[in-house]
Nucleic acid binder design. Structure first.
Lengths: 218, 218
DNA sequence: GTCTATAATAGGATAGAC
DNA sequence: GTCTATCCTATTATAGAC
């Protein structure tokens, strides 16, 4: 529409401002809970007036939407790195699920917004959902690789395996955040069950005679 | 202190009024979400003014507290009935976990308050927690019976088994309520994985050579 | 882009009459 | 126990000056 160079600079500055707002909003959620986020508090911490925030976000729910998207995008990136490019192994499955849960319990400001539905009027837009959908697709693809590598049974129901995997993951996250929120990942009352729940998942969907974690007894 | 008879009647009437308020509050939460509960809306639906509610509840959080306690008390009762007095069997384990999850997804107004932490300033009182603690004790006792009956391994870590059981239960509930809230229990995307997750739990904590659900293959 | 000012509303909670 | 009246605070959001 007009000269591109200055527009780009403006847009970059604008994007930086938006990121600043999101940073502060995360701080507020960490202190007051996801439902305790208010435009006024964000503005107060930034040293500006509430109306100024409406330059960047049309509404409070648009702010939640951006936070939802940002959280999933960060988690997606973490999971990409954790996946790496190596061969699939049992240890990698445990590592990936651990990375997932570790990020979630380590980000109690994001996690409730991403995994629960704590905000009455808010539901994420398709755009905000995109990284979550992408992570789901990556995970499903990973599960297929697990099957091809013999880690999962040849006749495994990949969709079912995916759902049960998300069930145990969100179960650990939910129990830890709801019942023992202060505890670190390494020593959490519920995060410490991760080796067991992943082992039981692997044993259930795995090949018929693969040795399970507790198969060697007395 | 004074004449017992009229006081009892007054207290009974008061208790009835309190239950009425709770009924309406549950309706509001069902419509607006747990975080969408407001004193004004409850009063409006009851045809009274907000100040009148403060006769029964000192604060909004006291209302949440009563709702939290009521939810766990109802669930505790459901679980008692589901347990019955019969012998422990694999089928009973599945039935009990199904009852638990069925109640939760069937009461989306209560469940987020009970299993998540959606309300910023609120944390349940010891009194409100009591039925949840009692259900936990009952469950732990049930798991011991399962061990004694040979359903679980003799050397099973009961506390670990309890935590993994709650993990898979809250996982199913959370995934179902957060991602597919409208679906009924019987055909839910995530509730339908219950037979699998209970089977994997049983296989993991069960005796070494007990036949698992999918051990008979081709 | 940020401000002042203000709307318009709603929130929880209390005092005191009836 | 319920009401009216009110408080105080906070909310999201908009209009218009700078």
């Amino acid at each position: 529409m007009s000269a591109p160079a200055p527009l780009d600079r403006r847009q970059r500055r604008r994007q930086e401002s938006i990121e600043q707002v999101l940073d502060v909003a995360v701080d507020v959620m960490a202190d007051q809970g996801v439902g305790g986020l208010t435009v006024g508090e964000v503005a107060r911490r930034m040293g500006i007036r509430p109306p100024s925030l409406y330059v960047y976000f049309d509404s409070k729910n648009a702010l939640y939407d951006a936070l939802f998207e940002r959280g999933w995008r960060e988690l997606l990136e973490v999971m990409r790195e954790a996946r790496g490019t190596g061969e699939v192994t049992t240890e990698l499955v445990v590592d990936l699920q651990s990375s997932f849960v570790r990020w979630a319990v380590g980000h109690p400001a994001y996690a409730p917004l991403m995994f629960w539905r704590p905000v009455p009027g808010f539901s994420p837009s398709q755009r905000a959902y995109a990284p979550a959908v992408e992570l789901a697709a990556l995970t499903l693809q990973f599960l297929a690789e697990c099957r091809d590598a013999g880690l999962l049974a040849a006749e495994v129901d990949l969709d079912l395996a995916f759902r049960t995997l998300t069930v145990v993951g969100s179960g650990v996250i939910t129990q830890q955040l709801a019942n023992a929120p202060g505890e670190p990942f390494e020593t959490g009352t519920f995060t410490s069950t991760l080796p067991d729940v992943v082992a039981m998942w692997l044993a259930h969907h795995g090949g018929p005679r693969l040795p399970s974690v507790r198969s060697r007894r007395d």
